[in-house]
């Protein structure tokens, strides 16, 4: 039996007093990767940011268990240090803070300079490291920079918000490669420590990263759970509403 790394129970979340998520339940086991589908505005980013612990997302019900520990009311940085990491859909620009500084800060002294340099190289960020983080970055550059930071951070639970959106056809294989590295996909599931929860619209990432379970989020609730490829096919053919009919 594989053990759960993340358990979400009856989660309800409001943003600026507006209820966004309700009754969300999901479990991710150690070594597994799950994907999240759903139309724009359905609450996908909200769910990931809530798991990460961004204060704007207020939990009004339910709980989040990470590695057996209740983290529902834990601050964001404590969660990060416990092993949760996230790549953001729209990360902010921080003027004066270089991309290299961010990657170094993420490592918190764990990796050597040489290892960090390797991360920079493999993420194709050599040209960007001396630039202010996210300042004037293209869509694809943001994705690579977010993944490089996570590679330095080495979180056990990796939350990825649309890692492939806006990425060209060549870079997507690089992104796929980086995600696999992040999730230790080369290792056998039994040895794999890392787990992932990935938001995707197009499902392109599924061609590179194998995922065990897919969910469809609609109107702030999970309406469907199953094989990610099957779900993707249904969405492409018939739209999100169709997922409501499928038996979980």
């Amino acid at each position: 039996m594989s053990e759960p790394i993340l358990e979400i129970k009856d989660l309800a979340v409001t943003v600026d007093e507006r209820p966004i998520l309700h009754n969300v339940n999901l479990t991710v086991n150690k070594g597994e990767t799950h994907v999240l589908f759903g139309p724009n505005g359905s609450g996908k980013t909200t769910l990931l940011m809530t798991i990460m612990g961004a204060p704007k997302y207020v939990i009004t019900g339910g709980k989040i268990i990470f590695k057996g520990q209740d983290i529902t009311y834990m601050p964001i940085d404590v969660r990060a240090r416990l092993g949760i990491g996230m790549s953001m859909q729209r990360p902010p620009v921080v003027r004066g803070v270089k991309t290299r500084d961010m990657i170094t800060a993420c490592a918190r002294g764990r990796e050597s300079d040489a290892e960090l340099e390797e991360i920079v190289k493999s993420s194709n960020l050599s040209e960007l490291v001396e630039r202010d983080i996210n300042y004037g970055f293209s869509g694809g550059e943001i994705k690579r920079s977010e993944l490089a930071q996570l590679l330095a951070q080495q979180p056990d639970l990796v939350l990825l918000d649309e890692p492939e959106s806006g990425v060209d056809l060549v870079n997507i294989s690089l992104i796929g490669h980086l995600i696999n590295k992040l999730l230790q996909k080369r290792q056998h599931i039994r040895e794999r420590e890392r787990s992932g929860l990935i938001i995707t619209h197009t499902g392109h990432i599924l061609e590179y990263v194998d995922a065990r379970t897919g969910y469809v989020l609609l109107g702030g609730a999970i309406i469907c759970e199953g094989d990610p490829h099957e779900i993707l096919k249904t969405i492409v053919k018939k739209g999100y509403e169709e997922c409501r009919k499928c038996v979980m």
């Binding site: 961004a54 964001i76 940085d77 921080v94 800060a105 993420c106 951070q153």
Partner: peptide, 10 residues
């Protein structure tokens, strides 16, 4: 911006 860096463990 503060939260972004805290998200990375700072």
């Amino acid at each position: 911006e503060v939260e972004y860096l805290m998200m990375r463990g700072l």
